[in-house]
């Protein structure tokens, strides 16, 4: 999997490294959440970060999207070292994310929630938007079209006008994915996209993740603790345990890695 840009057996193109973590260490007071971790994410791939509860996966994702600033180490994004940034600055760089515990506007409709994902794409000044005139109107129409394509893509036409709070969990997760997609991200971060889902919902979500990657060429980094799903859909997997990296590679390599088996199953291997 490593090495120069190449094409996968199923016809997708994996490009150069877009993001690189170099020797990241993150501490909260006396607790070290991430210990000296390095890995990279390549353009067009689905990169998973797995590990048992408390391994530091979510912290890692928060480092990637710039919410946490590591005490040590460097983050390189598109060939440049990234300085500490505010979340909205990160969003403008083309990184979007979903949350482990759904963070939608519960009283708003599905459509409006996904529209909020277009925020970074809106240029018209607030006073024009308030009266919905001139460029603001054209912009809104264009944004709505993008959003409608996402609604079509995620097959949620039937709930377009439904308030999010009335939807079952699996659908809320899908709406959250839609909102992240609305920003047309280069890099999409998914924090436990299948947590709490039943098998059918997991299958649907896996399909959508693969389709997003295939259809829009979006690079995806996801955190998940359901090993089965991750192994099926990822190109490369980083395995974390107690804040340290214990494995990194293609799913089949990782699965055969004794340290990973130990961390996950807690039993001795032959």
């Amino acid at each position: 999997m490593d090495g120069p840009p190449h094409t996968t057996p199923d016809g997708r193109t994996i490009g150069d490294v877009v993001m690189e973590m170099r020797n990241i260490t993150l501490r909260f007071g006396g607790v070290t959440a991430i210990k000296d971790i390095s890995f990279d994410i390549r353009e067009g791939e689905i990169r998973a970060i797995i590990g048992p509860n408390g391994a530091g996966k979510s912290s890692m994702l928060n480092v990637i999207n710039g919410f946490y600033h590591p005490q040590e180490g460097e983050i390189w994004f598109r060939g440049q070292r990234r300085k500490p940034m505010k979340p909205h600055e990160i969003a403008h760089q083309g990184i979007a994310r979903t949350f482990q515990n759904i963070a939608l506007f519960r009283g708003m409709s599905v459509l409006d929630n996904i529209m909020t994902g277009r925020f970074t794409r809106m240029r018209a000044p607030w006073w024009q938007q308030a009266v919905w005139a001139g460029p603001a109107e054209r912009e809104e129409v264009a944004n709505r079209e993008v959003v409608e394509r996402i609604i079509d893509f995620l097959e949620i036409q039937a709930i377009r006008k439904t308030p999010v709070s009335r939807l079952p969990y699996g659908l809320q997760k899908r709406v959250e994915l839609g909102r992240a997609l609305a920003a047309e991200p280069k890099l999409l971060l998914l924090d436990e996209p299948m947590a709490g889902m039943n098998v059918e919902e997991k299958e649907d979500m896996s399909r959508f993740i693969l389709d997003v990657n295939d259809e829009f060429g979006t690079t995806i980094a996801l955190i998940e603790h359901d090993m089965g799903v991750v192994m099926d859909i990822s190109d490369r997997v980083v395995v974390m345990d107690y804040g340290a990296k214990i494995g990194d590679g293609a799913p089949e390599e990782v699965r055969a890695n004794p340290a990973v088996i130990d961390a996950y199953l807690g039993v001795a291997h032959d």
Partner: peptide, 8 residues
């Protein structure tokens, strides 16, 4: 023919 697509 009419068909609703992309909400329209």
């Amino acid at each position: 023919y009419r068909e609703k697509e992309y909400g329209i």
